[in-house]
Nucleic acid binder design. Structure first.
Lengths: 349, 349
DNA sequence: CTCCTGATTGGAAACGTATCCAACAATTCC
DNA sequence: GGAATTGTTGGATACGTTTCCAATCAGGAG
């Protein structure tokens, strides 16, 4: 290939503006604007003249000028933890598709679950005057969120809720999801069920743990507190926590992981300890990521409708001003596969 | 939780501007600007007065006004195929991290490999006056690309090159990667090696196929043309193509898939046909996605350094104006695992 | 013929910022 | 003491657009 010269153009020249087009077409500036903003009325002949001149000059309207004048940007910010995680990827696909329908652009930010990074991103998005922000909040930076909201930016939280902030969120029914997974394991006869969950500051973490506990309560089985482990969502710490869980003097016979990062860590730890699923230990988790159905055995999961959540979040954040936006809770779906089996039985579940 | 009221604020009021701050601090507009753009000199006492006033008024500088005046946006566009695909996710993480270092924002677009969608996104990014665009091009819309480039937008292509466009790209050594995978299978004694690849219009597709063929040539084994299948990167068509390959009258004993979508399709098709890897058929592929190491057996792959490619692409697109940007080719790394075994042998490789 | 209505048009005034220029003050240098 | 330098400041102008207002024009009603 011959593209060795770089493809870079000197950007010194002025860009073509509506004024240039107006001059070339022999009309007034206002008329050109009316053509491109598709508002008001323009005589067909005039419109054609203008469009011809614009084509000739390779004119492209500038969103900068437009947005400055209109005081709205058509951009929304999306703050996820890690876009390489399939759950956030699916969610983002939902956001992108919905935003595109409405001619909106998406500014992507990855917080890495770091409050400081999140704060920087919030500031940047505020400066960019985005119309709205969709975020998986870290749970910190309450002041920044409040300030952004008070500046008139529509905000929607996903997956987690923040107290005292009066910002709507879209979450799944965490309690029910975790409860069903746990009930399922209990029904299979397990009574030492490990719980590998996220930080309890996050409402999703608290709710899932509550579901896990409620399931125990319902059938009168005591939760073994030393089998309840909360950890950050990074691969290394999650793996270490999973190992710790498995190294318990009396190890669990089943394990609930509350998202795909923790599930992957658990599976890896189980294998590294030379154990096998489901013969030595049953494993269930949140998030129906692709690998859940590719590994052997395929993992029983509670699926969150990530794409649809992205779609809903986008609709919420773009709701007409003045419209009340209600927080939303979506249902999870349990997908039974083969990663759990009855305790004290040699036949697979 | 009590956030049932919506968190929406009427946006009717004027926003606070530098003029307001200037008035409140009893200084001139220019001085306020100097404080926030951090250019020129401002007396410490004055600066403090201004910062106090700004804090008091909750002033946030507007990127719109700044960008309009400066004629640059600090935004770059990223056009991928599907952000829920781990390869693009990793790449995007690299882009985000690098962009953030330089205070840049990333506008994310997913083309779905559709030329029409790609064109719309290019237009939108041009209107947004992004400083640069990083794209996995579909191979179409040459005019749009040319036009964007001529408007002064820095463009970098990833994964694929486009002829006659003088736009730099960052690619992996596709030919070598595919050659090594194929050589490996040939060395294990396979001679009927299926090839499941992308459309040949894409240079990456052509180069990988060339590597596959070269490997055969090197050892004097003829390519079985009816085992060479090119397909689009959608799950359904890829799966159908994989099935077709397996249903060959004389089926292949090994398979090369040229990316993770095709690899997943191949693996699923193999299993659905009741075959097992590697006993019935060996499978190797491009892309070291997480599941490649979680399935049984773990898949031998050629890994593309997605994150680093994102980083490099971002550096290229943000290179100082006037600087020549050289196209870049990065090396792949072959990761041997257990998804291939010698033909005519009962011991695993 | 005049008045009125509606469609079409041109141009001025913002939107919020950066930057140039002139003005001024406080030093410093001879 | 005067001139030159340096640091600091205010204000006008421009960036590319939208939008308001007034003006023009064609044509129908009276």
């Amino acid at each position: 290939m011959s593209n060795t010269t770089g493809g870079r153009r000197e950007n010194g020249g002025k860009q073509t503006t509506m004024r240039d087009v107006a001059l070339a077409a022999g009309v007034g500036l206002g008329t050109v604007s009316r053509v491109f903003s598709n508002v008001g009325s323009v005589a067909p002949a005039t419109r054609e003249k203008i469009e011809a001149a614009a084509r000739e000059l390779n004119f492209r309207p500038s969103a900068l000028g437009r947005d400055l004048k209109r005081r709205t940007t058509n951009n929304i910010g999306l703050i996820v933890t890690d876009i390489s995680n399939n759950f956030y990827g699916e969610f983002a696909q939902g956001v992108l598709a919905t935003a595109k329908e409405q001619g909106r652009h998406v500014i992507l930010c990855a917080s890495g679950e770091e409050p400081e990074t999140e704060r920087e991103y919030i500031d940047l998005l505020v400066e960019q005057r985005v119309d709205g922000i969709i975020a998986f909040p870290t749970g910190h930076n309450l002041d920044s969120w409040r300030s952004a909201r008070d500046l008139g930016i529509n905000i929607v939280f996903a997956d987690r809720e923040l107290p005292d902030l009066d910002i709507p969120s879209i979450v799944v029914d965490n309690e029910a999801g975790a409860r069903r997974l746990t009930e399922y394991l209990l029904a299979l006869g397990h009574s030492r069920i490990g719980y590998l969950g996220g930080p309890s500051e996050l409402t999703s973490g608290g709710q899932r743990e509550a579901g896990y506990r409620q399931a125990h309560l319902d059938v009168g089985v005591a939760v073994k507190e030393d089998l309840v482990v909360r950890t950050r969502f990074t691969r290394d710490t999650a793996y270490a926590s999973a190992l710790r869980l498995l190294e318990n003097p009396v190890p669990p016979t089943a394990l609930v992981a509350t998202n795909n990062v923790l599930g992957e860590a658990a599976l890896t730890a189980i294998r590294d300890r030379g154990l096998s699923v489901p013969d030595d230990i049953s494993l269930v988790m949140f998030d129906d990521v692709p690998w859940a159905n590719l590994v052997e055995p395929p993992i029983t999961v509670v699926a969150q409708p990530a794409w649809q959540m992205g779609q809903s979040a986008t609709r919420m954040v773009l709701a007409a001003d003045g419209e009340k936006v209600q927080p939303q809770t979506v249902k999870t779906e349990m997908v039974l596969r083969r990663s759990a089996r009855p305790l004290h039985s040699s036949a697979p579940a």
